Simulated scan of single mutants.
Amino acid sequence: MIRILVLAGAATLSASLACAQEPIVGTWKTASGETAQIAPCGSSYCVTLKTGKFAGKKIGTLAGTGATYDGEITDPKSDKTYSGSGSLSGNSLKMKGCVLKVLCKSQTWTRL
């Protein structure tokens, strides 16, 4: 009987860990006031605009865990793609895009 309870507890724990989402997953308010959705896509996370002029446009792909993510960010206005990163601090996400890892621009998004 104890063995069954231990096995059931282990199965429940492993299922809950598998369903746990990364902290970056969710809906975010961008610096321009639009809404972006970050969701798993394959082995990374896709950033898609949900509101505004470019709603439905995928603007980035990030990979990582915890508080630091790296990948690519696309400026929807110019359609240019840059090396990018995201770093989490509470309900704030600092998004950064760089050209040649020297000229960088960043903005802070807020979790909705």
Rank of each mutant, 00 (worst) to 15 (best):
P40E: 05
S43Q: 11
A55K: 11
E34D: 15
A15S: 10
G56V: 01
G64S: 06
C46R: 07
S43R: 13
L88K: 01
N91L: 08
A20P: 01
L13N: 05
G71N: 00
A39S: 14
G86R: 03
K77V: 12
K58Y: 03
L49H: 00
L13E: 06
N91I: 01
Y69V: 09
S16G: 06
G66W: 13
T12Q: 10
A20F: 09
T61H: 08
S43D: 14
A15F: 09
E34L: 01
A15V: 10
D70E: 12
K80D: 09
S44N: 10
K57F: 05
S85R: 06
T68I: 10
V25K: 04
Y82N: 07
T81M: 05
T61D: 13
L17I: 07
G33H: 00
D70L: 14
G56A: 04
S83I: 11
T51I: 03
T74R: 12
T81C: 05
A36C: 03
K77C: 01
T65S: 15
Y69D: 06
A15I: 12
G52V: 01
A18C: 09
T61R: 11
A20D: 07
I59N: 05
S92L: 11
S87H: 10
A18L: 13
G84E: 06
K77A: 09
T65M: 07
D75Q: 10
S78V: 03
E34C: 01
T12G: 15
T27W: 03
A18M: 09
I38E: 05
T65L: 12
D79W: 02
C19L: 13
S44C: 14
G42R: 03
T81A: 06
A63G: 14
T74K: 12
Y82S: 02
C46E: 12
T74S: 09
I59F: 13
S43T: 11
Q21A: 14
T65C: 10
A18S: 15
K77D: 10
G26S: 08
T12A: 15
Q37I: 06
L17V: 14
L88N: 03
S32M: 03
K50L: 11
I73D: 00
A18N: 08
S87Q: 14
P40D: 09
